[in-house]
Design a protein around this nucleic acid. Sequence first.
DNA 1: CGCAAGATTATT
DNA 2: ATAATCTTGCGA
Length: 174
Amino acid sequence: MAERDALACEHFARPAIDVALDLIGRTLDVRDAETVRSAVIVETEAYGGVEDLASHAAFRPGGRAAIMRETPGLIYVYAAYGMYPCLNIVTNPEGEPSAVLIRGILPLEASKSIDGPGRSARWLGVTLDDQGQSICGDRFWVSTSRVPLPVERTRRIGITRGVDTEWRYVARLE
DNA sequence: CGCAAGATTATT
DNA sequence: ATAATCTTGCGA
């Protein structure tokens, strides 16, 4: 079998804000029993750090979000409003609980981008059971290659606290 | 044990 | 604008 074009887990052992920007333009692959879904990451948000009140690690540190304290490169999945699984990648700088939320993707076989964390995770086939999986494993991996895209930096969406920090990145698509 | 809030989405 | 739907945290 050919070498897989995958980033090593150590790549995510950096501040979430750095990883969030770095991920824009990279391809995310998710292997299913039958197929492999591939999509370019076009929108991300960084969460974490002791000062980030919007982070689950700050106001909901127990339960699933505890994984944000674990090894970088692990998958954190939470159900937004109890209904929609959302995909995160744990990115631990120095024991600081943090993660990057995948908010938008551009499926390779599609022409239209998918907007929103719930819709993105659903297209990729991500479920709550993927909690704890590795982003550099058999089911999930991210390409070493990166499509150069114009990136915009904005405030995060859908939150009521920590609204001042500009920790969201969006690729500007033609 | 009960209740309110929340990193959302589809429908009215 | 608002319902759908459930985990987590907090107060009684």
